[in-house]
């Protein structure tokens, strides 16, 4: 389970000055729940998720993954986390299988366990024919599959996926969505950020709308529809953002 408490991140940028990318955010994600994080470009989604992954240190506030504080014990918290963003690339000169296995080892598996788990994931993601292909030679769909396999190599309790379906064809993105649903049924706490509102509506149990670094609304898709009195998820989003447009 994920607990986010008063999380704030301020960047000191030379050109743009002080940027409050994440502004006092709090929310919770339970086991067996998919939480959608929605926002415009630059709203602060990726920064929030990076704070959770301990890649960045919060300016103030904190969060915990499966009870482990990301500020106090980052390494232990990370061991519970599977993290995938558009910025988490693959090692171009490693083969797909080497890539997955490498991360298995880094998560503390023995060589034998890492081998076994790698074979398992290659089977799950239908990557048999590509296992020995170097990552830079893979299609973007297969790259994304390898990335997700890498994310799942240690069967994490907490899963964070930043726009995992971007740039994928219908079949592949459906496979990703199905996989996320399966993990949810296995009791994982999942954060899923996306631009595609209908995908969020179908997949997410609850949705948080982030705007200028602040959470401006949280609720189930139906709750959000009721608040805004809109029927279409795109309209819900646009209405919420416009109502808060002057916040900055």
């Amino acid at each position: 389970m994920i607990t986010v408490k008063n999380l704030t991140k301020v960047f000191e940028d030379k050109k743009r000055g002080r940027i409050v990318a994440v502004d006092n955010i709090s929310f919770e994600v339970n086991r067996g729940e998919i939480f959608g994080l929605l926002g415009l470009n630059g709203a602060g989604k990726t920064t929030t998720l990076r704070l959770l992954a301990t890649i960045l240190k919060p300016t103030s506030g904190t969060a915990s993954l499966d009870g482990l504080d990301v500020v106090k014990s980052p390494e232990k918290a990370k061991a519970k986390l599977g993290f995938l963003t558009g910025a988490t690339g693959l090692y171009a000169r490693l083969q797909a299988r080497e890539m997955i296995r490498y991360f298995g080892l880094l998560y503390g598996m023995s060589e034998a366990d890492a081998d076994k788990r790698t074979d398992e994931l290659i089977a799950i993601f239908n990557l048999k024919d590509f296992a020995a292909v170097k990552c830079d030679k893979l299609s973007s769909g297969n790259k994304q599959k390898v990335s997700i396999a890498r994310t799942m190599v240690h069967d994490p309790e907490v899963i964070i996926l930043d726009e995992p379906t971007v740039g994928l064809d219908v079949i592949t993105s459906r496979a990703v969505v199905n996989f996320v649903n399966d993990e949810k049924k296995r009791g994982k706490a999942i954060i899923f950020s996306t631009h595609v509102m209908h995908e969020a509506e179908k997949l997410c149990d609850r949705i948080g709308i982030i705007h200028y670094g602040k959470i401006i609304a949280v609720g189930t898709p139906d709750e959000l529809k009721t608040i805004t009195r809109c029927n279409d998820m795109d309209d819900v989003f646009v209405k919420l953002v416009e109502d808060n447009g002057n916040v900055s």
Partner: peptide
């Protein structure tokens, strides 16, 4: 190549 973030996510 965007792999720095990948490796920083690992618990090492």
């Amino acid at each position: 190549r965007g792999t720095l973030e990948t490796i920083l996510v690992s618990p090492v």
